[in-house]
Amino acid sequence: MLKAKRKQVEQAADLRLQSQIGEQERFRDQLRRMARENKTAVVSFFVIVILMLAAILAPLLTPYEENEMDLLHRLQPPSAEHLLGTDEGGRDVLTRLLFGARVSLLIGVAPALLSLILGALLGAAAGYRGGMTDTVIMRIADVTLAFPSMLLAMVIMYSLGGGIFNVFLTLTLVNWANVARIVRSQTLKLRSDEFVEAARVTGVPDRTILRRHILPNCLPTLLVLFTLNIPAAILTESSLSFLGLGIQPPNASWGLMINTGRQYLYNAPWLCFAPGAAIMLIVLSFNFLGNGLLDVLDPRMKKQ
């Protein structure tokens, strides 16, 4: 995620804590209001749902197989039979795109979720425990954040090697620090709050305090972070695959399709531009949705 965006989320979350604490109901109502008022976010949400359904139902939507070769019909331009043309092996591009959506979406959502969980746990531990735990976790987070994310991903992929699982792991390791930072600062503020102190004084164990009082109050922020981490993960994966360091064939991801299609850019541009447009659509949708949620999170936006 962009540094500027992270700061924006952090600021919004802080302001939210100052203005109200423990009002889960309010956030739900706010979400409903967003669904009524923010058209862009709603449209984006439905685009995402449709793309996910298309990815899941891929075999039902297309008459072709994912890796069905047809060497007599290579590099054909879009036609009625092949809506987005065929690639260098005569495979139907639309079919590959639908199956590629499975990998690309999974690789957006799963690492975003994993880094969210990892970041939230480590961030909460650092903020709540303080002392040595805090120092160690946050110094590691600082070092991780100091890397440009693409570069860190490249170095990790170098030592792990390509393949889907390693891409998962890499994207998780790249994105957790963002989450940890924000959750830590939220935990620090919540910890000194009266209701948390009351719980501690009455002898509620730390683990229960974290689970019942601290993490639930971070949920709205986590939801925003999750939504914004997905497009970041998708972009990093597609860049890695584009360089040939990410997903390996025969798995199809959109980035990999562009990587192989690049050789035919001038005689079969649809090989690059179709998956490129797909990446753009999904990233755009998640960004719009994330920005809508960020507006909901930010109490300053309520007046408008």
Partner: peptide, 8 residues
């Protein structure tokens, strides 16, 4: 600009 991957 923000959503378009650099390579695209």
């Amino acid at each position: 600009g923000i959503s378009l991957p650099v390579f695209m």
